[in-house]
């Protein structure tokens, strides 16, 4: 009898779990959002803000799926969304090439598609809302040059770059932008550029090795805030945190975000890589409610420099 009881329990458990998850009610807009990876703080913040903004609209039901940083899983989830015929699909692609075709399928199925933040290979979207990592790279590079100028009276010094997942657009351009700036100053040297895959714990380990090898470091440029913080923790452990400045990127709000780290004096600066969600939701609502609305093919959101001067003000927002 064991198997029968187990079988019954199996069905009951699944049915129970699904109760209350029925499809969207009539006369409601159904918006599907395929998120690349809920586990990254930046993306968790996107999800939270999007949930908040759509919750203010009683006629919109939002569903978010999490691809857990897996291309195949995200393709599958978008395919399944297409079967559900949502009124609008928002995709934050895990990687450019992988999602291009399936987003084309959504367009073919006459579903308006908003591509959020990461680019794809073909313009298979109604509108693309993104910020610009190359500009962030330039802004970070210029900020670092300015700090070195202040410190030595001339633009010179040793920089450590902590790199995110290689091959990803954000990583490529945050790196490239800063290097383009440094290239104008031969006395500014990137003396190490370990890869920490966006992860704080890895950055701490990689930075510890750099600290052992490099007696003199002026600035650490983490390509995201968690990696800059990881580098700070490594330097602090070895009593060298006062020797250098730490610069990050992302500038998330909240207790664990980069803006708070600037207020705490851990980071000298960070750059708010905009969540892009405000604009995306705005565009989405216009598409849903106004059939004559024609969105721009592309919206670019400008990044913000955060230092001790404006951190508290931004944190309050």
């Amino acid at each position: 009898m064991v198997h029968k009881c187990a079988g019954a329990a199996l069905v009951a458990a699944a049915a129970l779990a699904i109760a209350g998850c029925s499809g969207p009610a009539k006369k409601q807009f159904f918006v599907a959002f395929s998120q690349a990876n809920n586990a990254e703080p930046y993306r968790a913040a996107q999800n939270e803000l999007m949930t908040q903004l759509f919750a203010r609209q009683p006629d919109v039901k939002l569903v978010i799926s999490d691809a857990q940083q897996d291309n195949s899983r995200q393709v599958a989830q978008v395919e399944t969304f297409i079967r559900q015929k949502p009124d609008l699909l928002i995709v934050a692609p895990n990687e450019r090439a992988a999602l291009t075709a399936v987003m084309g399928q959504a367009m073919d199925a006459k579903i308006p598609v908003i591509c959020l933040e990461r680019d794809i290979l073909q313009p298979n979207y109604t509108s693309y809302v993104h910020s610009d990592n190359l500009t962030i790279g330039h802004m970070a590079g210029e900020f670092i040059v300015e700090q070195l100028q202040k410190k030595y009276g001339a633009p010179r010094g040793n920089v450590v770059a902590i790199r995110g997942l290689l091959g990803v657009e954000g990583e490529i351009n945050r790196d490239k932008g800063a290097r383009e700036v440094f290239a104008k100053y031969p006395d500014i040297k990137i003396i190490a550029d370990p890869v920490a895959d966006w992860i704080q714990a890895k950055a701490k380990d990689r930075m510890t090795e750099v600290l052992r090898a490099q007696p003199k470091i002026d600035v650490v440029y983490g390509h995201n805030d968690p990696m800059a913080v990881g580098a700070y923790l490594a330097a602090r452990e070895l009593g060298r945190d006062k020797e250098m400045l730490f610069v990050g990127v992302d500038g998330l709000g909240g207790e664990a975000g980069g803006i708070k780290k600037v207020m705490d004096g851990v980071l000298a600066a960070t750059f708010v890589y905009p969540l892009c969600v405000d604009k995306a939701v705005d565009v989405a609502l216009h598409i849903l409610r106004d059939s004559s609305f024609r969105p721009e093919k592309e919206y670019r959101i400008i990044p913000t420099l955060v230092t001790s001067a404006n951190a508290a003000e931004l944190y309050g927002k």
Partner: peptide
């Protein structure tokens, strides 16, 4: 689970239960 828009964290928990139950079903008589 995806067609019914079950939360992805809940999806993982349901799968865990199903894996154990599916094996239990087979280990029966």
């Amino acid at each position: 689970l995806r067609l019914n828009n079950v939360d992805s964290n809940v999806e993982m928990m349901i799968k865990a239960v199903i894996i154990v139950l599916a094996v239990a079903v087979q280990r029966g008589k």
